[in-house]
Design a protein around this nucleic acid. Structure first.
Lengths: 154, 154
DNA sequence: TATTGTTATACTCTATAACTATA
DNA sequence: TATAGTTATAGAGTATAACAATA
């Protein structure tokens, strides 16, 4: 006979399911923010800025776990949208300090609202108690996770 | 003042957290199966084969939500490893029917065990009750999700 | 000499389009 | 003519390596 769902098969593991659901969440979030000319990686950068006050591009590369050259490209785009501003650090003129502009904070708020709408869709089939449990457990798992790691769907 | 964690910010949404954790799970799973010359997408294909008995490459492309040309490449690699076998459908000689070999099933089992080990690591910080809740809720969410969607980390 | 940001280049993943063979 | 598989090509995303300015 065959394995039951959630048995010893790969499809029953948390790792595999997180991968599938994460890819799904990302694709759908990307579709929602596309009208603002933003992609999930831009929001990750803006979220890091919003959380950590000021940050140099090197700081951000480390926090996001991406190459410094990618931060350049993301910051270029965000700057062209007026969402972030670059200013040279007066004490160390090598450093480019990024800050969210008012418009950037506005965009971030709009995209966060879009994510909350998506949350409703994703969890629509769950009883309220399970929704709360999911939120609580994901918060616990995210607290010690690196901000972003690249990766593909399984 | 600033937003608290889990407040109205993007970082507090289920969609964003699922994206981050999904990418993390995928990266770490990929690292564990790399010694077998396999990537998560290969495992997705093998899992679909294991679940659905026989399947043509077109069937699999639809199930996995990927282009048929990608199924060709994945099947080529799995065939070279001896994990799947291609056989022409006698009734419709255009169709290539893929089946898991004994070795393929073995590999799938080994990788599923690796995923369970990873599950232990990922959920080590959670109390047992929360682990059970996570497992239950992810199973519910995965049941109606398409097998695999491509996507990036936020 | 070491570090920050930048640019140039290459690599991985995946899709689209053109092609072959079967139907 | 339409469909399954394949091959060829192109695009997105990201990393690595070389470079310029500053320390």
């Amino acid at each position: 006979m065959h394995e039951a769902e959630g048995g010893s098969g790969l499809a029953g593991t948390v790792a595999y399911r997180l991968g599938v659901l994460g890819a799904l969440a990302n694709t759908r979030f990307a579709a929602r923010i596309e009208p603002y000319d933003l992609k999930p990686r831009h929001l990750a950068l803006m979220t890091a800025l919003d959380a950590g006050r000021v940050a140099s591009q090197q700081d951000l590369a480390v926090r996001l776990g991406v190459a410094p050259s990618l931060v350049v490209a993301l910051a270029d785009h965000l700057e062209s949208l007026g969402a972030v501003a670059r200013t040279r650090d007066a004490r160390d003129r090598r450093r480019q300090v990024l800050v969210l502009t008012g418009h950037g904070r506005e965009l971030l708020g709009v995209c966060a609202a879009a994510a909350r709408e998506l949350d409703e869709e994703l969890t629509a089939a769950l009883p309220a108690g399970d929704r709360a449990a999911l939120d609580r457990v994901l918060a616990a798992l995210t607290s010690d996770a690196p901000a972003v790691e690249p990766g593909d769907a399984p």
